[in-house]
């Protein structure tokens, strides 16, 4: 089994990948948000990750450690976006930064922990449980699957493949949910049949992890 060591340069390109993906998915995410929210989720995610990618790209690779990368991303995401996604992803990224603390490169176990920390950060900030039709419905099962795969000794690529599969299933499952958090929680049954936009964008982020470490 190969071992990847993820450093600042790697993380920069991961953020660039996510930013590109969000620019591509922006319209679809806005459309999803238009059905059960306020039609801006694509804008928020694109703005946030564009700002994050730009800020980390400007860091001096030789001087910046992974923690600084995540914290820089968190701060610029937050300053760019005031929507729900802002504090959710900023908190996620800060938690990732905390896990990376003191490390100049991240090994596979670290990356799994970081992935779990992202999910945990979102859940702590938003206080949503699985089943409440939010991005947590993608992130929580993805993080659990990722850890389980790692526990079974799979490679990082295998872990993120499992994560992606679980995240996609989780996002899909939001279609059958009535929302209990976020804007759509007011809609009651009218939200049924529609995927949560935050869960959809979570899948986009997770897919970038997967593609990056494939």
């Amino acid at each position: 089994m190969t071992m990847t060591m993820t450093g600042t340069e790697e993380l920069k390109s991961l953020f660039a990948r996510i930013a590109e993906a969000m620019a591509r998915e922006k319209d679809r995410l806005c459309e999803l948000d238009g059905v059960i929210g306020d039609a801006d989720h694509g804008i928020a995610m694109e703005l946030g990750f564009a700002a994050a990618a730009k800020a980390v790209s400007e860091l001096d690779t030789t001087a910046a450690d992974p923690t600084l990368v995540f914290n820089t991303a968190a701060k610029s995401f937050l300053n760019a976006v005031g929507a729900s996604s802002g504090p959710l992803y900023a908190t996620a990224l800060m938690r990732a930064g905390a896990v990376a603390k003191g490390k100049s490169t991240l090994n596979d176990d670290d990356m799994v922990e970081i992935f779990a920390a992202l999910a945990k950060g979102i859940q702590d900030r938003g206080k949503a449980e699985v089943g409440e039709k939010t991005m947590v419905d993608a992130w929580a099962p993805a993080a659990a699957a990722c850890r389980a795969a790692r526990d079974q000794g799979l490679s990082l690529a295998g872990c993120f493949a499992a994560a992606l599969k679980a995240g996609e299933a989780g996002a899909e499952a939001t279609k059958d949910m009535v929302a209990a958090k976020g804007r759509s929680s007011r809609l009651g049954d009218r939200a049924l049949g529609h995927m949560d936009p935050g869960a959809a964008s979570a899948v986009v982020v997770i897919a970038c992890f997967h593609d990056h470490f494939m």
Binding site: D38, D40, L78, N79, A80, V81, G82, G86
Partner: peptide, 12 residues
């Protein structure tokens, strides 16, 4: 004041 229908940022 945030963007239209969007919360202001913590920094604001």
């Amino acid at each position: 004041v945030g963007h239209i229908f969007t919360s202001p940022t913590p920094s604001q």
